[in-house]
Every structure is written in structure tokens, then in C-alpha cells.
Computed example of a mutant assay.
Amino acid sequence: MKVLVAGGTGFIGRNLVRELHERGHEVTVLARNPDEADVPDGVERAMGDVTALASIEGAFEGQDAVVNFVALSPLFKPPRGLTHMSVHLGGTQNIVRAAEEHDVGKIVQISALGADPTGPTDYIRAKGQAEEVVKRSDLRWTIFRPSIVFGEGSEFLSFTKMLTPPYLAPLPGGGKTRFQPIWVEDFVPILADGLDEAHDGEIYRIGGPEVLTLADVAKLVRRAEGQPVTVVPLPMALAGAGLKVGGAIPGFPMGADQYRSLKFDNTVPDNDATEFGVDPEEMTTLGEYLGVTSGEFS
């Protein structure tokens, strides 16, 4: 199968590119700077910006499927000149249009848990509206809504380190926001399987083997570096006020939207990994990945 991976130079995207290549697919990476991509020999590269339709159309010619990984992180403020709507919604609109015009058969859309066109954050609203574009298209489609994905180069771990200084760490609400982290190497085989027709028209909510609070994650990350940490609850109202002020400062990495994202959990009610023959209990935990046992942060 000929597969175009839009955003294939990112953290999850480059892992999927490797997985697809190892499975024998003909893979093309579409990115703004594809020459910088760390991809296996034999993977093609195409330059384009999904917010500019004319720049990407040529990459869709002759493709059987497209995987849309293009995204802005929900953890940090978007770079100047970009918004969640322009990238997630506008980019998806352009990808769908180019795919339809070039007779691409299928799109695999990487969305987010809680995606909702009228949701509580810009990120969640943009992801929800992008899903609607995909579902209304003429393409066969499969949508994935993952929890936080971790691994080498993941923003989640660097974000946690930034938010959590060693020894004493004030976390919004005491770090009670819950996540269900999944290791990237457990996730990408599921994504690759999503190209199969058997998964057409489905929305899959995928999480890892355990539910952890932000405080749990912080303690694991610091313990792995030999730096114990005590979490001090920071009232949500105070944290919100601080981020609102800080968000107005150029270069400050977080803002009101990131604060709102910490007010709701990022977990799955039922883990759809089982639909791909995967037992969540056999997945790699965050503690195992970091070399820290789960009992060490309780």
C-alpha cells in the first residue's frame, strides 16, 4: 500500500513511518522540512504546509491512504502566527480536499480524547471540528483518540519536567488531573492496523495500561532522575490567574487554554486497544519505561 504520512517527522509520526516501512508499505513523509526527517532508507519525502493547499496537493497523487498527524501540542501555546483552528481544522480540510481530488481511498485521522466541536479548549474544539470534516468526506476513514503518548522525544515528559521542579513542586489542583499514558511503541502498531478496511468508519479511544495523576507522573519522572519531589497543591483559581498573566508574556510556554486542559481527565472508559487484539495489561507502563517501579511514587 502507498501511504502518505502528513506530519511524519513528529514524535509519533516518525515511529509510525518506521512501522509502516517495516511492514512493506511504500511510505512518503509530508512535512514542512522533510529533509530533516530521520526516516528509514527508501521512505520518500515531500515538502508542504497543510495550511496551504497548493503546497501539498502534488504529494497525494498515486497514494492509497493518508495518515494525518499534523498537529500543535495541547501542552504549550501555539507558535506565533498559528492557531489550533488553522492547523487542526484548516489543515484537515486541506488534506481531505487533496485526498478526494487525487482519489486517495482512506484517511486515518489522529484526534484526541474528548474531541468535541463545542469543547472546553481551543485544542479540543479544533480536533472535534476536524473529525466532522473527516466523517463528512467521501473517503473511507478511521479516527484514533489517544491519551497521552510517551517515549523518546515526547513532549509530555519534557512538559512534566518543566512544570515540576525537583524537591518541591506546586501543581495546579495538587496534580489530580488523570492520564492514561501509552508508550509510542505500543501505539504505532495499532495505528498501522487502522489502515485495514475492517476498521473503516470507527472511532477508537486508546489508552495505556494504567491511570496516573499528574502528580504520579511528576514523581516518576523526578525519581527516574534521582530527584525526589514533594507535590504542593496550588489552588486551580490561583494557577489560572498566574497562567493568564504569564500567557501575555512573549515566550511564556503556557496560557489559559493549557490551564483549562488540566481541569479535565485524559482517560478512556473502555480501552479500544482490545479491538486490535492487544491486552492493555501487557503494555509497557510509564514506570517500566523510566526504570522506576510504580510503588516508588506512592
Results as ranks from 00 to 15, higher is better:
Met1Gly: 12
Met1Phe: 07
Lys2Pro: 05
Gly7Arg: 08
Gly7Thr: 06
Gly8His: 02
Phe11Glu: 07
Gly13Phe: 07
Arg14Ala: 08
Glu19Leu: 04
Glu19Asp: 08
Leu20Ala: 09
Glu22Leu: 12
Glu22Trp: 04
Arg23Tyr: 01
Gly24Cys: 07
His25Lys: 03
Glu26Trp: 13
Val27Ser: 07
Val29Ser: 09
Val29Ala: 09
Asn33Tyr: 14
Ala37Glu: 12
Asp38Trp: 05
Asp38Leu: 12
Pro40Ser: 11
Val43Asp: 03
Met47Tyr: 04
Val50Lys: 00
Thr51His: 06
Thr51Ser: 09
Ala54Leu: 09
Ala54Thr: 13
Ala59Gly: 10
Ala65Gly: 07
Ala71Asn: 14
Ser73Asn: 04
Phe76Thr: 12
Lys77Cys: 05
Pro78Tyr: 05
Gly81Thr: 12
Ser86Pro: 03
Gly91Trp: 04
Glu100Phe: 08
His102Pro: 01
Val104Cys: 05
Val104Glu: 03
Gly105Trp: 00
Ile110Asn: 03
Thr118Ser: 09
Asp122Cys: 00
Asp122Gln: 04
Gln129Lys: 07
Gln129Arg: 08
Ala130Asn: 00
Val133Asp: 00
Val134Tyr: 01
Val134Trp: 05
Lys135Gln: 15
Ser137Asp: 10
Asp138Asn: 15
Leu139Thr: 10
Phe144Thr: 11
Arg145Ala: 06
Ser147Glu: 13
Val149Arg: 04
Gly153Pro: 03
Gly173Leu: 01
Pro181His: 00
Val184Leu: 01
Glu185Asp: 10
Glu185Gly: 02
Ile190Met: 08
Leu195Gln: 12
Leu195Val: 13
Asp196His: 14
Glu197Ser: 15
Ala198Asp: 15
His199Cys: 11
His199Asp: 04
Glu202Trp: 11
Glu202His: 15
Glu202Asp: 14
Tyr204Phe: 15
Gly208Ile: 12
Pro209Ile: 11
Leu212Ser: 03
Thr213Met: 06
Thr213Phe: 05
Leu214Ile: 00
Asp216Tyr: 09
Val217Trp: 06
Ala218Trp: 02
Arg222Thr: 01
Arg223Ala: 13
Gly226Gln: 00
Gly226Glu: 02
Gln227Asp: 06
Gln227Lys: 14
Val229Ser: 03
Val229Glu: 06
Val231Asn: 11
Val232Ile: 08
Val232Tyr: 06
Val232Asn: 02
Pro233Met: 01
Pro233Gln: 05
Ala237Ile: 10
Ala241His: 02
Leu243Lys: 03
Gly247Leu: 02
Gly247Val: 06
Ala248Trp: 15
Ile249Lys: 13
Phe252Tyr: 15
Phe252Ile: 12
Pro253Val: 04
Gly255Phe: 10
Ser261Phe: 13
Ser261Tyr: 11
Leu262Ser: 06
Asn266Trp: 11
Asn271Cys: 02
Thr274Ala: 14
Phe276Lys: 02
Pro280Met: 03
Pro280Asp: 07
Met283Glu: 07
Leu286Pro: 07
Gly287Tyr: 12
Tyr289Thr: 09
Tyr289Phe: 14
Gly291Ala: 13
Val292Cys: 15
Gly295His: 14
Glu296Arg: 15
